[in-house]
Amino acid sequence: MTTVEELSTPVAVVSGGSRGLGRALVERLLADGWRVATFSRNPNEFTETTAEKYRSSFLWEPVDLNDTTAVRGFGRTAAQYFGRIDLLVNNAGVLHQELFLTTAPARMDNIIGTNLLAPLHLSQSCARFMMRDKSGAIVNISSINAVRGYRGVAVYAAAKAGLEGLGRALARELGPLGIRVNTLTPGFFDSDMTATVTSENRDKIQRRTPLGRLGTVEEIADAVLFLASPQAQFITGQTLVIDGGITC
């Protein structure tokens, strides 16, 4: 049986929480006393050991970002399982690099679906539960590809730019309901997405970055958790770029 104390413990929904930034956020939130619900396409050692360690505070389910019915259903499942939703981090996304003129229509649909439509559906599902308590926060994870043009990522950039526009519009619409919406736009940082970057290109990125290095997952997680924290209670509708200055 869920205790009164457990019901008052905040709940975070983090998409794509099995690895990378999503995993770091899940670990940090659980360590800070949150209850966390997350999904990914497949389980892994992290999701299995975390479920064992945090039996009453952690929920994981398999969800494909392109299955909008399942994405919406996960928001409902998290709310029913924990009794509330206080934070949503739209973290999950897929980067595909290919010249625009050779990108197949089905691939375009997939990129837009995973990076824009899935966050749209999950945000609506979770916000409907947040509005009951007249409080909550949504943090969308974008990319500097939405800020500055790069070759080979046109469709991905379009999806992430749409996500930033979504954040501003939702901040206006959901603000009167006590729900804050912000966007975090990371630059290049060590992750699964940058693991395939060649050493030559990595050197170029570092030379072009005023701080002279790539970011870390923990630095990006710090910024996400700040936007979700009480210290950011008067911040909404904003896009926070964390990129070491590469877009300045």
Rank of each mutant, 00 (worst) to 15 (best):
residue 196 T to A: 12
residue 227 L to T: 06
residue 12 A to L: 05
residue 133 D to N: 14
residue 49 T to E: 04
residue 129 F to K: 09
residue 198 T to H: 02
residue 19 R to G: 09
residue 154 A to S: 15
residue 230 P to Q: 13
residue 230 P to K: 14
residue 106 A to F: 06
residue 23 R to E: 05
residue 49 T to V: 10
residue 107 R to M: 14
residue 153 V to K: 06
residue 4 V to A: 14
residue 85 I to L: 06
residue 135 S to G: 15
residue 70 A to G: 02
residue 201 N to R: 12
residue 216 T to E: 09
residue 198 T to S: 05
residue 49 T to M: 09
residue 144 I to C: 02
residue 19 R to Q: 13
residue 54 Y to S: 11
residue 231 Q to M: 11
residue 157 A to K: 11
residue 17 G to L: 05
residue 43 P to Q: 15
residue 102 T to S: 13
residue 240 L to G: 02
residue 224 V to P: 11
residue 158 A to Q: 09
residue 62 P to K: 11
residue 190 D to W: 12
residue 119 P to K: 00
residue 210 P to A: 03
residue 234 F to C: 04
residue 211 L to P: 13
residue 151 R to G: 09
residue 246 I to E: 04
residue 100 F to E: 12
residue 72 R to V: 12
residue 164 E to H: 08
residue 220 I to C: 09
residue 185 T to P: 06
residue 187 G to R: 13
residue 52 E to G: 12
residue 154 A to C: 09
residue 229 S to H: 07
residue 244 G to W: 05
residue 10 P to E: 07
residue 208 R to Y: 08
residue 182 N to L: 06
residue 49 T to N: 01
residue 187 G to W: 02
residue 74 F to Q: 00
residue 76 R to W: 08
residue 154 A to H: 09
residue 26 V to W: 00
residue 217 V to K: 05
residue 225 L to D: 04
residue 81 Y to K: 14
residue 13 V to F: 06
residue 18 S to Y: 11
residue 44 N to S: 11
residue 109 D to M: 13
residue 136 G to A: 03
residue 168 R to M: 00
residue 13 V to S: 04
residue 107 R to S: 13
residue 8 S to G: 11
residue 157 A to R: 11
residue 59 L to M: 00
residue 204 K to M: 14
